[in-house]
Amino acid sequence: MSMPVASALTRRTIVRCIETLLALFVLIGLNFVAVRALPGDPLGVLFADATLAAPTGEARDQLRQMYGLDGGLMDQFVRYLGHLAEGDLGVSAVHGLPVLDLILPVAPWTLLLVGTATVLSVLLGTAGGIEVGLRHGRRGNATLLAVLTVADSIPPFVKAIVLLFVFALGLNLLPASGAMTQFSEARGLARLGDIALHAVLPLSALVLHETTKIAYLTRASTITVLSRPFMTMARAKGVSPLRLRSAYVAPSTLATVVARTAALFSGLVSGVLFVEIVFAYPGLGMLVAEGITSRDYAVVQGVLLILGVTILTVNLIADLVILRLAARG
């Protein structure tokens, strides 16, 4: 009896893995082609602001070779694939450092924001959505719903700007930029506190955004659960409110939330880009934004590739876990 189930599971697992690989390939290809199909010359960007003569002729060719921008499209692509296989994401034309060396010190900050935001938005969104759902039909519910709807209509960068303006610049409660005080001595708890202080506003902007979405979903599934027999029985039994929420309602809504995890993570990674720009938070978002303005091919390619791969991997793992549970359950 278990054999057909196992083979079905294996088949689905393999299919999901292949899909992810295909998506990865599309991403890499897109990454590369889009970059090269540009008007404008990266050399022009690098030297346009020079206070004296911009290089011409022979000097330009030399510099082009130095920065790895020579050769036909196919040559560049083959070389690019080769480098990727070695883990070499190229060298930033602006910073002069290998792209990986630029990404590694920066990635933990983004990871901090996204990781913490995931936890917080799942917790807050689920709890909040359940509350609103349980209050379905009662007074005050309409206001809550209205607030949710309005909050959902505010794009993440607008939320970030408002938070920056009110809390950092207006009330002067929290730092307006950066991840921690530079070259500071603080160690241990003091340092953690410094980092946390700088992370509060960007985190809030991120969390606010995804929380409303999850709250909506949780609310909807809470409402459908409300009328189910086991709920009426639980209420009749006089189960405590906390137990009602955690043991009876929450598990039923988690299915929806888990299904949304992929989109949640994707949404957070996209959102963190804007939040970092607004708060000058030194993460991958800032790196990409700078790379975009300075047409630093390697950096933009590298960062977006890393982000895309991360999203694909996370989604794949989540899906495989769900598949595994579904097969066993």
């Binding site: 899909e19 992810t20 295909l22 998506a23 599309v26 991403l27 897109l30 990454n31 889009a34 970059v35 994707s266 990674v269 996209s270 880009l273 990409v288 975009i292 933009v300 977006l304 982000l307 895309g308 999203i311 694909l312 989604n315």
Partner: peptide
């Protein structure tokens, strides 16, 4: 496969 790609990131890239 196409859905797996983060659309905003790809939009930014292009």
């Amino acid at each position: 496969v196409l859905l797996a790609l983060p659309s905003l990131l790809v939009a930014m890239l292009v």
